[in-house]
Amino acid sequence: MASTDPEHNEEETAAVEDEDTGAQVAPIVKLEEVAVTTGEENEDAILDLKAKLYRFDKDGKQWKERGAGSVKLLKHKETGKVRLVMRQSKTLKICANHLVIPTTSVQEHSGNDKSCVWHAADFSDGELKDELFCIRFGSIENCKKFKETVQEVAESQQESKEEDEKEASSTAGLLEKLSVDDKKGEEFVKESSDAPKTEAVATADSEKKEETPVSGS
């Protein structure tokens, strides 16, 4: 006779469900591990802060939100170039992507010590655009750290640019010297070919001419 006790019936049902039948069910869909590339593999992050980014709309003459997420300064391992990259936290969509160059200057936003503004030739939309950005941090300390780090990078890029210009100038001078030396060598060869023959060479040529039989004799 079946038991009418609900708790007893539930225990029997649970025992049946927990019983190991030994059967193995293969998964319907096999998920494979996929390597995700971000384009940042050859760069080192020298700054990574949470913030909210705005872009100034020139047509509407107002600030428009670009997204909230992590703003990073990434230094390339080989070239030493530094770029600013910011992605939205949820979608990972890029909302800022530009190089930090010697002329990059970050200024405090008027009336808000947690925000700052700067101009940049941005490439986040797939083409270079002159943008005016405003970024807002959760604390005054983070805003200050952002400004100081960008300033340090801009100064280091200026020094690197000056060194590249000096190296280019030095290389140009070396190439010019080599070019002058080559011209001197060419002049020397020409002068050697136009120089009068020595007495020994002239005598040898004369004797060779006398030994040559005249045709028809």
Rank of each mutant, 00 (worst) to 15 (best):
S3M: 03
P6N: 10
E11H: 12
T13D: 12
T13G: 05
D18F: 07
D18W: 05
T21F: 10
G22V: 03
G22Y: 03
A23I: 15
Q24M: 05
V25F: 04
V25C: 05
A26S: 13
K30F: 02
K30T: 13
E32G: 13
E33H: 09
E33Y: 07
T38R: 07
G39T: 08
E41Y: 01
N42I: 02
A45C: 08
D48E: 11
L49K: 15
K52A: 13
L53K: 04
Y54C: 07
F56P: 05
K61V: 06
Q62F: 07
Q62D: 09
E65P: 08
E65I: 10
R66K: 15
G67P: 01
G69F: 02
S70H: 13
L74F: 01
L74T: 07
V82C: 03
L84V: 10
M86N: 01
R87Q: 12
K90H: 09
L92F: 07
K93H: 07
I94V: 11
C95W: 00
A96Y: 04
H98S: 10
H98V: 02
V100D: 04
P102N: 08
T104P: 05
Q107K: 15
E108T: 15
E108Q: 14
E108P: 14
G111C: 02
G111V: 06
D113A: 05
C116G: 14
W118H: 06
A121H: 09
S124L: 02
S124Y: 12
D125T: 13
E127I: 12
E131Q: 08
F133H: 09
F133D: 07
C134I: 03
N142S: 15
F146Y: 14
E148D: 15
T149K: 06
V153H: 03
A154M: 02
E155Y: 04
Q158K: 14
E159V: 11
S160Y: 06
D164N: 03
E165T: 06
E167L: 10
S169E: 13
A172P: 03
L175E: 11
K177A: 11
D181E: 14
D181L: 10
E187T: 00
S192W: 07
S193Q: 12
D194S: 12
P196K: 04
T203K: 11
A204G: 03
E207F: 00
K209P: 00
E210D: 11
E211V: 03
E211M: 09
S217H: 03
